[in-house]
Amino acid sequence: MKRFAKWGLTMPATIAVVVALVIPVLLTIATTFGEPKGAFSTYTAFFNSGFRTNILYRTLRIALITTAISLVIGFLTAYVIARMPGRLKSIAIIAAVFPLLTGVVVRSFAWLIILGKNGIVNDTLMSLGIISEPLSMLYTEGSVIVAMVYLFVPLMILTLTGVLEGVPREVVEASTSLGATPIATFFQVILPLAVPGLIVGAVLVFTGSFTSYATPQLLGGEQMMMMGTLLYQRAMVTFDWVGASTIAAIMVVITIAVVTIMSRMARRLNPMAV
């Protein structure tokens, strides 16, 4: 009875994940090795194509920059939120949750209005007489990064607020009572204790921006393709499924590698864990 219960109850979810996710994804990866030209021929082709490697490097670059900026903005903001009095704190958290619950399309779309040819930034700069011709800010790495930071900062703020609130007040007070200045306390006590949380936040943002589709589609366009948009284009526009599968395999490997390495690191650096 109990034997049936413990396996039986997990069975529907297990079957669904294995059949509809694990096997399809493994099949996608497997097809890349079945080419007549040799098992690794699609990968050789990928890495020999300047166009495609550029997209891979751009995607990595954009994901790294987005992660770094989100970390700094998110950490400083979370530090302020963690120190706010109760009421103000709830308002701040609602203000961070609201964008998070708003869709990616809607949030990316806002930046089209802001950065477009007739957007707010151009309008303002022209009416101030700083520029005479509208700047082309869309379809650049910059526009993609701005929108991605916008996308991921709320996630980082919420993750890190939780982390910073988890640093016991007494530990901070102990540091103070032992003569550490606020800056010394920040660098010697608060920051080291927040490192595991920072890593978790960084992994979330890195994988999220590395695999994003809607934002580069809207703000990067054809000129600034990323891995996600490239995959879609190969699969649904040129119907090069082997090429799309190759891109998929590279994305899976990089994502899983980053997640495993970083979460192992976070666990090792976590002093609270026994």
């Binding site: 007070e173 102990a174 103070t176 009572s177 006590v189 080291p192 609270m272």
Partner: peptide
């Protein structure tokens, strides 16, 4: 300010620095 008062404080829940060894905790001040 609190950090300039030079007072030894022992807390109810110990408030040891979880990321520092026993030696580093004692040497912190």
């Amino acid at each position: 300010p609190a950090h300039a008062r030079d007072i030894g404080l022992v807390f109810q829940n110990y408030a040891l620095f979880p990321h520092l060894t026993v030696m580093e905790n004692v040497a912190f001040g």
